[in-house]
Amino acid sequence: MYYELYIDVFFTVNFTMDYILLVAVRKMLKCPARHGRIALGALLGSALTCLVIILPVPYTFVKFVLFHGMVNVLMIRAGLLVKWGSDMLKAWILLYISGFLTGGVFQFLGQYMRIGSLFFVLAVASYYVVSGIWSLISYLSRQNQYRCQADLYMNGRKCQVQALIDTGNSLRDELTGKPVCILDQDVARELLAGSEAVKLRYIPYHSIGKKDGVMPLVTLDKMCIRNDKKQWIAEPMAAICENEMTADKYKMIINPEILVGGIDDDNKSSSTASI
Rank of each mutant, 00 (worst) to 15 (best):
Q111I: 14
Q107G: 01
Y139A: 13
D166H: 08
T167E: 10
Q107W: 05
L122E: 07
G104V: 02
K90A: 13
D151T: 04
C148S: 10
T167G: 07
G99A: 15
W134L: 11
L136W: 15
R147V: 05
Y127N: 10
F119G: 10
L118Y: 07
I133H: 08
S131Q: 11
A163L: 01
Q111H: 10
N155R: 12
N144G: 13
M88G: 12
F108H: 04
F120Q: 03
M154N: 08
L94Y: 12
G103R: 00
V129A: 14
F119W: 12
A125I: 04
Q143C: 13
F108K: 02
L122R: 12
Y139L: 15
S126H: 10
Q143A: 14
L140D: 12
S135D: 15
N169H: 06
L140H: 14
Y96M: 01
L152S: 00
Q145V: 05
F120S: 07
Y146C: 14
Y153A: 10
G104W: 00
I97Y: 14
V121N: 04
L152P: 02
Y96S: 02
A123Y: 07
Y153K: 13
V121C: 04
V124F: 14
N169G: 03
R157V: 05
V129D: 11
Q143V: 12
V105F: 11
G156T: 00
Q160L: 15
L140S: 10
C159W: 03
V129N: 09
L152K: 03
Y153T: 10
A91C: 10
G168F: 05
L164C: 00
V130C: 11
Q162L: 13
Y139N: 13
S138R: 15
I133K: 03
V129S: 11
Y112M: 09
T102F: 06
A125K: 02
Q107F: 02
V161N: 05
I93A: 05
V161F: 06
D87N: 15
S117G: 01
